[in-house]
Design a protein around this nucleic acid. Structure first.
Lengths: 149, 149
DNA sequence: TATTGTTATACTCTATAACTATA
DNA sequence: TATAGTTATAGAGTATAACAATA
């Protein structure tokens, strides 16, 4: 069908190119799925997820985990604090550090919001074959690993 | 190892969540790989790729293909025209339409730039096992399809 | 001096709304 | 009236540089 693309994908560079473009497009599509009036950005939701899974983190740890610069994470955390979804706590021993943890309200919002945000993608996934879903199930952690290198 | 996550990924909603976050992170990591002084944005490169593969397109077709709004595509095309990488051509029959095609300079830049841009990801891919690369080779077109639904 | 986080500022990419020209 | 594209403007998310507080 598309011999040039298929051949290209067999090389590392061709696969890199294909994967890069497809990831770019899906991310853009996902970002466009935000519902009107939704106060949580994609990045903020991701931070809530980290706090939920890993527990309390410092701003620096969150920045490293999300692969953004500290000022960007400060801004995201400010939004979450203003919304009452996380709480700041100063470290007793090293007063430079600020610990962030998810609040009850943040947890409830995370779960509800995640369900809502994932609805679009989950519906698209349901339209795939079980084999295709199995491929993505294997691919997701590999992509995650690529991103965290 | 991570029983909660693995269990979650077996449901469509869990897979959606995992895939969404990993795609977000990889995209951000890729965007950060832009070399200093590089005049081509990720979106502009993608447009050059479309023109290379599909030949001449209208602005509207490019906007649809890249899933952006017409004004965004106009801006991207303007950058490419200014750089001499594409050329505009008015339709003879319907003067509202503008056809865009890649120039020789654009093609050379596309190929060189793609090699350079993919270098980081290709290196990461080389660090994977052949099995993992095979999974990604299967996953890329599925992800592309998810994005274009 | 080095580290942690914040503030100030600017850049990139995208969107919506309003507009022009053409059909 | 409807369509293709552009211009004007705004918003979201990110970055770098400079700064404050603490170690």
């Amino acid at each position: 069908m598309t011999p040039t693309l298929e051949r290209a994908a067999r090389t590392d560079a061709g696969l890199a190119s294909e994967l890069r473009v497809s990831v770019m497009r899906l991310r853009r599509r996902l970002a466009a799925e935000r519902e009107p009036g939704n106060e949580l950005s994609v990045g903020a939701l991701s931070v809530l997820g980290v706090l939920f899974r890993n527990g309390e983190c410092t701003v620096g740890q969150l920045a490293d985990h999300e692969r953004v610069r500290p000022p960007s994470m400060t801004r995201t955390v400010n939004c979450l604090v203003d919304a009452g979804f996380v709480v700041r706590r100063s470290d007793e021993h090293d007063k430079r550090q600020v610990h962030i943890s998810i609040s009850d309200q943040g947890l409830q919002t995370l779960l509800a919001d995640r369900r809502r945000r994932d609805a679009w993608l989950a519906q698209r996934l349901r339209e795939l074959t079980p084999q295709q879903r199995a491929v993505l199930r294997e691919a997701a952690p590999i992509i995650e690993r690529l991103a965290s290198t």
